[in-house]
Structures are given as C-alpha cells and as structure tokens.
C-alpha cells in the first residue's frame, strides 16, 4: 500500500471499507469443534450410564467421570486457541459472557443435583437449550437454534418420564443439539476454508 495518498474518491473509500469488513467477516467462523467435543462426551456418558444400569452395575453414574476428562481437554484446547488468537471480535467478547452465564447455571443445577432429584436432567437440557439457541442466533446458524428448541422440548418431556428414559432423552438432546449441528458447522467451515484458505488461520473458535 502507498505511504501517503491524500485524496481518495468516495468509491475508493467505500471499496476499502467494504473489503476490510468482508475480510473480518470471514474470520467469524466456527469449526464446530467445541460442540462436537462436548456433544460426543455427554452422548457417550449417557450411553455408558444406560448400559451400566442395564447390566446391573452398582455405580453406573461413574460414566459421568468422562466430564472431568472433557474439562481438562477443554482447558488445554482453550489455552492453545487463546495463544493463537490474533483478533478478538465483539462476538468473542459477547460469547465469553454467555459462556460464563451458561457454565454458572449448569454448575448450580449440577451442585443441587441431590435436591433436584429427577428434575436434574430436564434442567440440564433447559440450560443446554439456552446456550444453543443463543449461540445459533449470534453466529446466525439455524441448526443450532433448532437444536436449542429441541433441547427445550425434550426438557419438558423429561419432567414426565423415569430416570432411564431421561438418559435416552438427554442423549437424543445432545445428538440433535450438539453433534449434528457440530458436523454441519464443520462441513460449512471446511467448505469455506477451501474457497478461501488464508482466512482459516484466524478462525475465532
């Protein structure tokens, strides 16, 4: 670019502004990795819990020990992504606060599990729905918003069923809310990267 060029035409100014806006837009891509990571972990834990109950194992809830493992993976992944992040968008900042609100709500539900009893899983799905719907709205991605709505519907349904069926509903909720939208998002991301290879380096999630 030239060092000094004092007068620009309106068209030229607009072209510059537009090209800069477009170039940052391409970085607002989510490759779906967080949705896939947690979707598969929760899904696996549901299946394992259900299976262990089926075979009559004494402590089937040990299946949820997968969650701390996910926590450690997330911590490492988050640190690595933070280090390579060259730009912080307004969406990043907004999503950071939504994530905090989501995690606090989730931990309150998990912390009061003994008091909540059979209402625990429906409330977890309700909090998932909240997170998915907002994420889908912010990145303008319909499958996530639909996933959020499905989570809410399944949360209502889960209030009326036994624990075993609640496990099945939670597994379905993460499959439809996290895993499937996660793969669609990944597909979309890969396609976009193929079209514009340079923009992939600064993907924000």
């Amino acid at each position: 670019m030239e060092n000094e060029k004092s007068i620009m035409s309106n068209e030229e100014s607009l072209r510059i502004i537009r090209s800069m806006i477009e170039s940052t837009k391409q970085d607002l891509r989510d490759n779906g990795s967080w949705f896939l990571l947690w979707g598969w972990l929760v899904f696996a834990a549901c299946i394992l819990h259900y299976t262990l109950m089926g075979v009559g194992y004494e402590k089937p809830y040990l299946a949820w020990m997968l969650m701390p493992i996910g926590g450690v993976i997330s911590f490492i992944k988050g640190l690595r992504e933070g280090k390579s992040q060259k730009v912080k968008t307004h969406i990043d900042e907004f999503m950071k606060h939504v994530l905090i609100a989501f995690l606090v709500s989730l931990f309150i539900v998990l912390g009061f599990m003994p008091k909540l009893g059979l209402s625990t899983y429906p409330l977890i799905m309700m909090v998932y729905g909240f997170w998915l719907y907002i994420s889908g709205g912010v990145i303008n991605f319909r499958p996530l918003r639909i996933g959020g709505i499905i989570n809410w519907v399944l949360a209502i349904a889960a209030f009326f069923v036994e624990f075993e069926l609640q496990l099945v509903l939670l597994g379905t909720a993460v499959l439809l809310g996290y895993i499937i939208p996660g793969y669609i998002l990944r597909n979309k991301y890969n396609k976009a990267v193929k079209l514009n290879p340079n923009s992939s380096k600064e993907s924000y999630v």
């Binding site: 670019m1 030239e2 060092n3 000094e4 060029k5 004092s6 007068i7 620009m8 030229e12 100014s13 510059i16 502004i17 090209s19 800069m20 806006i21 170039s23 940052t24 837009k25 060259k86 730009v87 912080k88 968008t89 307004h90 990043d92 900042e93 600064e202």
Partner: peptide
C-alpha cells in the same frame, strides 16, 4: 483528513469491526 489515506482508512475500517486486533493480523 487524517482518514483520507488508504492504509489509515483500512486500519480504522478493520478495527471498527472487531474488539481488538494484533499488529500481525
């Protein structure tokens, strides 16, 4: 007039769109 320069206008347009950005970006 400070903004009537290609690079300065580019930098401003870019930064208006994000919260913050590194020099390399």
């Amino acid at each position: 007039p400070l903004l009537h320069q290609q690079l300065r206008l580019s930098v401003m347009s870019l930064l208006m769109n994000v919260k913050e950005a590194d020099f390399t970006y």
